[in-house]
Every structure is written in C-alpha cells, then in structure tokens.
Nucleic acid binder design. Structure first.
Lengths: 213, 213
DNA sequence: TACAAACATGAGTAACCCTCATATTTGCAA
DNA sequence: TTGCAAATATGAGGGTTACTCATGTTTGTA
C-alpha cells in the first residue's frame, strides 16, 4: 500500500488536505510533516502539539504546513485515517475466513488481544482515539470505521445464524464493537492489572453475545 | 510565575475554586457565573464558550471570574461535579433496596431508561460528558463517579451471589457501568431510532451479564 | 472607627492558530 | 533552450483567546 493520496474527504468541512501534493518534492515534505506531528503527539499529546513546532521539526515553514493542511485538526485526522485504513484491512482478513462459531470465537479473541496490545504500545493511536469525543471530524471517522468493522462482524453472524433478524445482528455487532473500543480506552486509563481484567471480562461478555445470540 | 498558594484539590492539578467564596454576595455571584456558563454550553457547547462571554452574561468582570475559577476547564468541572453528586444519590437509592434478581433487573432497566432520557434532554450534560476523554480532570471525575456507581451495583451482586469471586463481580459491575456510559454516548450521536435499538441491545446484554453471571 | 481580609475591576500580556503578499521552483509546450 | 503558468515555499503579521495583576472597593469585626 503506497500512494494513498487522500485527496478529499466525505461531506462538509471534514478535514482534508487543502491541496493535494502533486510533486515528488512536496509529497516527501508532507510525509515529514506527518512524521513530525506523530512524534510530537507521542511526546506530549495532540493537544499540546504546536503547529510551529511541527513545522520546525519537519524542516518546513509554517506556511508550507498550511499549504497542505487546512488546520491543526486536519493533521491529526490524516494520521487517524491511516490507522483506520490499515486496521480495517487486518480486521477484514481476520473475519473473512470464519466458517463456524468456534472460528469466530478464535478470531474475535485474537482481534481483541491485538487491539489491546496496540493501544498499550502506541501512544499516538491512544491519543488520537482519546480525542475522538471532542472533535467532530474525528468522531465521524471513528464512527465510520467502527461501522465498517462491525459490518464485517455482522456478515459473519448472518452466515452463522441465517434465521436471525439481520437488523438485530447488525445492531449487536455494532454495539459489541463500540463496547470494545470503549473497553480499550478504559483499560489503558487504569492500572495495568485492572486493565487486563477488564479486557478479559469484555471478551467474555462479547463472545457470549456473539456466540449464544 | 506560577500560582504559589492555590488551595489545591485532590491529587494533581484537578480543577478547583481558586478561592472559596465566603461572603453571601460572592456566593451569589459564583452561582450566576455557573448559570451563565451552563446556558452558554447549552447554546454552543463548552468548546465555543468564551470566558469573556460568561463574565458578561453573569454580570461580573473577567477578573471576578478568575477569582473563583483557576481556568476555563474548572467551570465545566464544577458543573460536572454537580451532576455526579446529584445522580449518585439517585443511583444509590435505586439500587439500595434491591433484594433479588428480579428486583435488580427492574432497577437496572429503569436506571438505563432514566439515563438515556437525561442524555437526550440535557445538552449541557451531553456536552460535558462528551469532553470527558480529552480533559484529564473531567476524565478523573468521570472515572471516580463511575467507580462509585459500579460499587453500588457490585454490592447488589455480592448480595445476590455470595459464592462468586468478589473481585470478578466488581470488575463486571465496573465494566457494565462503563459500557453503559459508552452506549449512551453512542446512542445520542446516531439517529434516534438506531440509538433506541442500541440502548435496548445494551440493556439486554448488561442484564444477562448481571443476572446470569 | 479602624483596619485587614475578601472581593471587584478591566486594561494589558502572552500564546497560539492561521493568512497572505511575495518569492522561488517545477513541469512542459513551443 | 526558453518562456510561462501552476505548484510550492516563506515568515512576518493579524486576530482571537485564556489568563494576570496592579489598583480600587466592600465587608466583617475588634
């Protein structure tokens, strides 16, 4: 996966590059800007990230920064979008091959573990998804991402339980997924040991919901 | 150049009045400030709320505002604290009298409904708890509140299932409660109809976890 | 009545996001 | 190669906002 372009984004004033970099030179510079932002977020959080600092660390002027990102949130949004794109492929692959209840249990359990480990290890991801409630564009992105992932899950459920009401299955899948994200956010904001317990409890709860109907 | 003698508050830099109003006059003024802030949050959200506007609407100077609140977040925090104090009493009362599984199901179901209606009706509450992820002090308050409420729930569970592992029950209660708050936030950010479905699904899921172990 | 502590004020400060006029570089057609 | 428009680069400065502080006023009380 390269290129990515990220030309425009859905509806309204969702953050998007003000101008897509078309030359090699500027594409590299945009990469440097994103890398600088990522590093700063890891160090101090996106709230404390200063645009001037991003520019300085990327070795560009403040004006260049705004040439490609309409505002501060757009940078965070761009980073978030990369995470969702990557993880969706991973999730889709993990769930696509599921054929029976046991397989679902296995795959889901592994996904939860992977996500938890990712949240623990990636300060940038953690920071970005923490700000999800406050920022409208981020919230939209997270909702869309969650919906997409929940649909993968719902597809499996429909396969396993063809007699069940499809809408109910979709609701369950969406809820279970969102609860998972909430559980992760909770788990990483408490002591490690309690976090582990909470994730384990979530997993049990979710699996029961998914498997026993 | 930092505040030397701030009265301080529980651990860390949790927001608190810089100086407690001791005179009748100032107590009234603080009330007016909070009322003004509440109205502005309801109108435009706490992010768009301007300190100057709060002062103007409360009929006080900007300096007076900062006499009692160390910063902007402290005002939001003070409002949030009122909500938690009020609701904790309500929740405690609802759960205290529960004697059997059926009673728990009844009480919990009612609590969920009340909370959902509250979230739908109260823009201030909605706004404040939305910002919970971004603001550290608010997050602490919400966590503490959630822990307290979860303890009421855990106490009931321990009464109903004295043989079960207490720590597991506490974990379950805390998780279920946090999932509930997440479900509410989710529900109010989608179409009303889908929100209703999600809340209903959460209720089913939570009740199963609470009642069936 | 005196006086210290509490309270009130608002012009001023600092920090930050973002703009824009201007300069430079690139791609490409003639 | 040369000319030129589009793309890219720059950073001083505009505008907004949270917050401070020196100064003045009110209140409780000895």
């Amino acid at each position: 996966m390269e290129d990515t372009a990220t030309p425009v984004s859905p509806q309204e004033q969702i953050a998007s590059p003000r101008r897509a970099p078309s030359q090699q030179r500027s594409r590299e510079r945009v990469e440097r800007m994103l890398a600088a932002a990522s590093a700063l977020i890891a160090e101090q959080g996106s709230d404390a990230m200063r645009m001037g600092e991003v520019a300085e660390r990327a070795g560009v002027s403040i004006g260049s920064l705004y040439q490609f990102f309409p505002d501060k949130r757009a940078i965070v949004w761009a980073l978030a979008e990369r995470y969702t794109t990557e993880s969706q492929a991973c999730i889709s692959a993990a769930l696509a091959g599921v054929g029976d209840a046991e397989g679902l249990g296995q795959a889901f359990s592994e996904l939860v573990d992977i996500y938890y480990r990712l949240f623990l290890a990636e300060p940038v991801m953690r920071d970005i998804w923490s700000g999800t409630q406050a920022d409208k564009a981020l919230r939209q992105l997270e909702l869309a991402d969650s919906r997409a992932n929940a649909e993968f899950l719902a597809a499996v459920l429909k396969r396993l339980r063809p007699a069940a009401d499809p809408v109910a299955l979709e609701t369950t899948a969406f809820l279970v997924w969102q609860m998972g994200e909430a559980a992760m956010r909770l788990a990483i904001s408490v002591e490690r040991q309690e976090g582990d317990r909470l994730v384990a409890a979530y997993k049990r709860m979710a699996l029961r919901e998914l498997l026993d109907g």
